[in-house]
């Protein structure tokens, strides 16, 4: 099933996240990632939801979201020009002698080392899904200890 990114503008009130989450769970829709924060207008929040669904389910998700009283707007970025970003923090176990090699990889993909201890290295990467995925694949052979991802956020290119 295809991955879709939808952006949901909601009232910035308590309980709204529960309404959205409840809608997904009650109807058996799966969420891949979810990011929530305030917008330029403090009375509104934006939720960026990544989900896997076929066209029919995606259509239902959008309609059901629109049906919630606290939802102001639903934007589907599946067929829209957009900029997609996610923050990744990854901790890898790297022995002393392999450190230069790993640092080189990190540098070559434009990621940033944010913490180093005697055999541990923590890397920060910002990018779209492909970029995050690529870095993780490069680091995997060295021993990944922990992955933390922010979930995708997306902004439209036009207007």
């Amino acid at each position: 099933m295809q991955k879709h990114t939808i952006s949901v503008l909601v009232e910035n009130k308590f309980g709204v996240l529960a309404r959205i989450a409840g809608l997904f769970s009650a109807r058996g829709f799966n969420i891949d990632s979810l990011a929530v924060s305030e917008t330029e207008d403090p009375t509104m929040s934006r939720m960026t939801i990544v989900l896997r669904a076929d066209d029919r389910i995606l259509e239902q998700v959008k309609k059901q979201l629109n049906k919630l009283v606290d939802v102001i707007k639903v934007i589907d970025y599946t067929r829209k020009q957009s900029i997609n970003r996610e923050v990744l923090l990854v901790k890898a176990e790297v022995e002393e002698k392999k450190r230069p090699e790993v640092l080189k990889i990190i540098d070559s993909v434009g990621a940033k080392v944010v913490d180093v201890s005697h055999n541990m290295i923590t890397v920060e990467e910002t990018g779209d899904e492909a970029k995050i995925h690529a870095l993780l694949e490069l680091l995997r052979p060295y021993g990944i200890k922990e992955i933390v991802r922010s979930g995708a956020v997306v902004i439209g290119k036009e207007g």
């Binding site: 029919r56 259509e59 239902q60 309609k63 059901q64 629109n66 049906k67």
Partner: peptide, 8 residues
């Protein structure tokens, strides 16, 4: 009246 009822 309910768009979500259509093509459900």
């Amino acid at each position: 009246i309910d768009p979500s009822a259509i093509s459900k």
